[in-house]
Design a protein around this nucleic acid. Sequence first.
DNA 1: CGCAGACTTGAAGATTATCAACCACCGTGG
DNA 2: CCACGGTGGTTGATAATCTTCAAGTCTGCG
Lengths: 263, 263
Amino acid sequence: MSEQTLLQFVKSPPICVSLSIADVDSDFLGITPKHYPPDTVFDRQGDTRPRVFIIKSGWVCISRHLSNGNRQIIDVPLAGDVLFIPSLDGGGANSLTSLSEVSVFEISGQVFRKALDRHPMLSALFSRIIARQHSIAVERLTSVCRRNALERTAHYLLELGERLGAAGAITEHGYSCPLTQHDLADVLGLTQIHINRILRELRERELVSFRAGTVEFLSRPKLVNLAGFEGGYLHYNWTYGLHQIGASRQASHHPPARKTFKT
Amino acid sequence: MSEQTLLQFVKSPPICVSLSIADVDSDFLGITPKHYPPDTVFDRQGDTRPRVFIIKSGWVCISRHLSNGNRQIIDVPLAGDVLFIPSLDGGGANSLTSLSEVSVFEISGQVFRKALDRHPMLSALFSRIIARQHSIAVERLTSVCRRNALERTAHYLLELGERLGAAGAITEHGYSCPLTQHDLADVLGLTQIHINRILRELRERELVSFRAGTVEFLSRPKLVNLAGFEGGYLHYNWTYGLHQIGASRQASHHPPARKTFKT
DNA sequence: CGCAGACTTGAAGATTATCAACCACCGTGG
DNA sequence: CCACGGTGGTTGATAATCTTCAAGTCTGCG
């Protein structure tokens, strides 16, 4: 990929910190995306070659495998999300695995670095992306520390809804989601068995239903209330902050193509 | 502060991602630091004015107050650490509180932005700092999710040791630490009472002693083993990654002034 | 059919939280 | 000087939450 295309890529107005899904949909990057079937590890823990991945479609998880055999899912990036590897994680300590059919753009660190050197304002934009990912991680950290399994699960299902909404991948009452109960457990720091009971309770209390790959909100207001959910940390209305630098030169001209639930 | 001084500030070779403590010690920034007594909230949750803080000395905590009255400590930045507010957190959702006597540099977002616009390679450097903070958050997330209270506490005390080591603030066998048991609980997602018992166990098993503001390693190898501690995520030997861009122009000329424990 | 993966359920056990005291230290005001 | 209150730490008893073990069910698919 040439530097020119990368610049063009960023100039086409990004939504806040994720990319406009329309932009990712077209193959404007000038490189053809790679396709992977579900359950493919396409970036193995320990690989330290710097790269950038941009998810075109499908579900991916960033996971960490501990010495005791446990797995921790750090995040589940969605279509339009940008991943910096390995700067994001503990230095090549994470793996990327497809959870569904996915197609991703992969850009070598060398090319990316060159482009950044030439067009330094990109750097500000990308630090904005990292800051957002940090913000999401911080939210999950407090969730895991200070919310019980029920609230935590509710909170996460709401988060996924918001993020998918930004990618235009929601229906009126919910969204489809290829995560297994085991995956969900590894995201939330619980066991699959416990998640199972929690999901049952959420269903029985008529809050959300997570079944057969479909999440359906039964009473979103009650759910928001239970979880104490406030979507601000997702930065979908990022209007303040240091990170306007650079990015401010390329003001957003058309509104992002996304739906959002009313809170 | 002029842009010139900010540039100079960054040119004086930073250690990886924290600043050389020697650099922060001198008042080279050209601004006088502010001093706060312990337990002062010097940046309140909800304040969205963008700013950068650099900690000159003392202990600070970044905390979040939830609606249910709980507090979650996101991180405990130490001398030499750089804080971007509010881009770091969920958008002004966090507070900064001094845990000891502290002195901090405060730079307005406006000044900072101007400097970044002029010298875009700064941006790469600072995104490197954010990436490191993210990496620390990710490590704590997995710690909280997949390590029990004993391992988690051990891990955190080791982390603090490493980070203080980089700031030159450790003795041969440990370090001094103003955190109360309650603070520690809020970092690790436990209750003060439980932390108390955990600390007792760590002491009785002759691993670490946390008492009277002093942390003393009784058997660091055993502790490392218990916690499964690997310091890589702290990025003290950051030699790879996208973030060499820009920063690579200002190669490190003198080695960082820091001590590190042997593992 | 028969197998495999995902999900479900029950029972028992470990971990952590909650409630309720109590101690020890320290600075303050009488 | 001592009584006093406040904060931080300690301990025990009990309860809630979550995990582990064990045994299923359901469903899609070769």
